[in-house]
Design a protein around this nucleic acid. Structure first.
Lengths: 152, 152
DNA sequence: GGCGAATAGTTGCAGACACAACTATTTCGT
DNA sequence: ACGAAATAGTTGTGTCTGCAACTATTCGCC
């Protein structure tokens, strides 16, 4: 309840805040030579894991933590590249399916090893197994806490 | 060196990735009613801690992990609000100082408690002292590792 | 059954940011 | 001491994203 952070708290917090930016930049940079962004890659991953390799736009937006309009435009680009298709839903004509194409699946399979290696190199290896478990536990707690008060 | 992540690794990694987005959004949302963004707030913090409460643009950009042009525009906005001033440097006429104003310092002092409370609420409290130390240690390792290979 | 509310998606618009190109100034090698 | 290279900052441009407004469809309650 104090007004300020302790030295320790401040050091930890800044370590975190400043690492995140560099980390994301490094992952993005590792993926760039393979001709895809993290954003598009994540779409491929979610769709590839989904039932029939397709998702409703709104569910996909939720999974990606993206606004509806943001997803619309991201998908526009991916459709242009032939990685996904839009398909209409017969049972609910409001929804649009985002459907992974064969090309998209191939792209994902082609790029995934590089991304996995990148995550390993920048995060998992430096932290070690113990550290990775800690990471998961810490952010699990943060996540639970955040979801407990979504609109506070 | 495996091609994929283990279940454990995947769970930890996704916990992290998805938490970060929500966490930043929550911090931003807590600050918004006070009429300032995280980005501008961080500028105020850095300047308030700096010698004579001013920094060279390039140093400030580095501290904020922002591109030169990004900082130029952010400062434009903050100058408009009267929180900072630009000043020229007599010893090196290439550099522009970003100088915190009294108004800017007051603004920072006024909103800081809210931000500190927000960080406590969303991160430090859920993690506890042990967790906070772990957080700092983990990202210290990530950060060291990243800085070891800046342009790889 | 029918009308208001909720939900799915897209589009217009504005903001934040990075990269590239440019100017101005300083530093360094010879 | 002079010219090339490095450094500091700004501006032009394009991309990504979110919010607000809008249409279309479905759901729920009377």
């Amino acid at each position: 309840m104090t007004e300020w952070l302790t030295e320790r708290e401040q050091a930890s917090w800044r370590n975190f805040i400043m690492s995140v930016h560099d980390l994301m930049a490094a992952l993005e940079a590792d993926l760039a030579p393979h001709g895809i962004t993290m954003g598009d890659y994540e779409v491929l991953v979610w769709l590839s894991e989904a039932d029939e390799q397709r998702m409703r736009m709104c569910d996909l937006a939720g999974a990606l933590q993206l606004s509806p309009s943001g997803l619309t435009r991201r998908l526009d680009g991916m459709v242009r590249q032939g990685w996904v298709q839009r398909a209409s839903c017969s049972s609910d004509r409001r929804v649009a399916w985002a459907q992974l194409t064969d090309t998209g699946l191939q792209k994902m399979q082609q790029v995934a090893p590089a991304h996995v290696a990148s995550v390993r190199r920048h995060v998992l290896d430096p932290l070690g197994p113990k550290g990775v478990d800690q990471l998961g536990a810490l952010f699990g707690r943060v996540r639970d806490h955040l979801q407990a008060l979504p609109t506070a």
